[in-house]
Simulated assay, not measured.
Amino acid sequence: MSMKDLENSDLTDIKSTPFGYTLSIIGGKWKMIIMFWLVEYEVLRYGELKRCIGQISDKILNNQLKELEKDGIIIRKEYPQIPPRVEYRLSKRGLSLMPILEEVCKWGEVNKI
């Protein structure tokens, strides 16, 4: 977004900006953590993902996964077997966010106190 675009936009409605849209997709406490583990392992089952993350409730993890799937960031694949087996992976769209997350990590390395 250029300065001219900023001058002509309603900054009180951050959701309508590209920045706000991006934050709506990856914002929150858990979404980037979920994406981090999925890029590390490529494919994870629900229980594996929960163990990687640590202290997250089933309700929150389920909600975050549903939102990421709805936004096209992850792919959920369910296998018709008993017990049910579900795997998660990043979609192409999700993988396109990885350079951004890598930059966030680099910033953390340089600025960690």
Rank of each mutant, 00 (worst) to 15 (best):
I74S: 01
R51M: 10
F19I: 10
D5K: 14
E40M: 15
W30F: 12
W37Q: 11
I56H: 01
K66T: 13
E102T: 09
K66P: 02
E102R: 10
M3Q: 13
W30T: 02
E78G: 00
E69I: 02
E109L: 11
T22Y: 09
E67K: 08
M98F: 07
E7P: 00
S91C: 06
I34K: 03
W30E: 01
I75H: 04
S2V: 04
K15C: 14
L97M: 14
L6S: 06
G27R: 07
P84R: 09
R89V: 04
K70T: 14
G72T: 07
L61T: 08
L11Y: 05
E40Y: 11
K77V: 12
M98R: 06
D10F: 08
L65M: 05
G47C: 09
I74M: 01
L44G: 03
G47K: 11
M35F: 04
I56D: 01
L23T: 05
Q81G: 00
W30N: 05
E40D: 05
E87I: 06
W30C: 02
M98A: 07
E48A: 12
M1H: 04
Y88R: 01
R89F: 06
L44H: 00
R51H: 14
W107A: 13
L6M: 15
S2D: 14
L23N: 13
C105R: 10
L68I: 10
S91M: 07
I26K: 03
N111S: 08
P18L: 09
G94A: 09
Q64I: 03
E40R: 14
E7A: 10
E40F: 09
P83R: 04
V110D: 12
L11T: 11
W30H: 15
K29N: 08
K112I: 07
E48G: 08
P99L: 08
